[in-house]
């Protein structure tokens, strides 16, 4: 076998290994993206205007087996979760049947509203995207690495981070 053929084989093998490493790298990035994607769930115990779902007077809501939230009529609480698949349980403070619903959160939504009355009714569409209205924002503080030494008229530097 000539040296030229061996070189070619080595080059192909090297390219394959490098390609494989890049694929593994991208796959790992996609994996942490999907499993680490954070969502904020607003657990809302209010009457639904769009259906016959009245607020529950005293409900214990638990997401993924965490400590239960105690919600009375008109209450709203917030839970931060990671990933897309979750199990939510709801039961009355007075006791009774415990209902469990499996939720699959849309990847592109950061904030979602979970309706406790719909959850208590066992509806799987109890979660929906929560859209906030555009609020006027506060003026930004000066940004960038301004430096009064090189630019005497510039704003003073922000305090450096203490290690």
């Amino acid at each position: 076998m000539s040296a030229k053929t061996t070189d070619k084989k080595t080059a192909i093998r090297r390219a394959l290994v490098r390609g494989g490493l890049i694929v593994v790298y991208v796959a790992l990035m996609a994996l942490v993206f999907v499993t680490g994607k954070g969502h904020t769930i607003l657990v809302d115990n209010k009457d639904r205007a769009d259906g016959p779902f009245a607020a529950v007077d005293g409900a214990l809501v638990s997401i993924d087996g965490r400590e239960s939230l105690e919600l009375y009529k008109g209450d709203r609480d917030m839970v931060k979760v990671k990933g897309q698949k979750h199990r939510v349980t709801v039961e009355s403070v007075a006791g009774g049947e415990k209902k469990e619903v499996a939720l699959r959160l849309p990847m592109d939504q950061d904030m979602l509203l979970l309706s406790v009355p719909m959850l208590a009714a066992g509806r799987e569409d109890c979660i929906e995207p929560f859209v906030t209205s555009e609020q006027p924002r506060e003026a930004d503080e000066p940004v960038g690495n301004v430096n009064a030494f090189t630019s005497p008229d510039a704003e003073p530097d922000a305090a450096p981070m203490v290690p």
């Binding site: 790992l28 990035m29 680490g36 954070g38 990671k82």
Partner: peptide, 16 residues
């Protein structure tokens, strides 16, 4: 920016 939380967020930051 992509709202990736926890250790996964750190791994994502390191990979990026």
């Amino acid at each position: 920016n992509y709202n990736i939380a926890g250790v996964e967020g750190l791994v994502f930051a390191a990979l990026a």
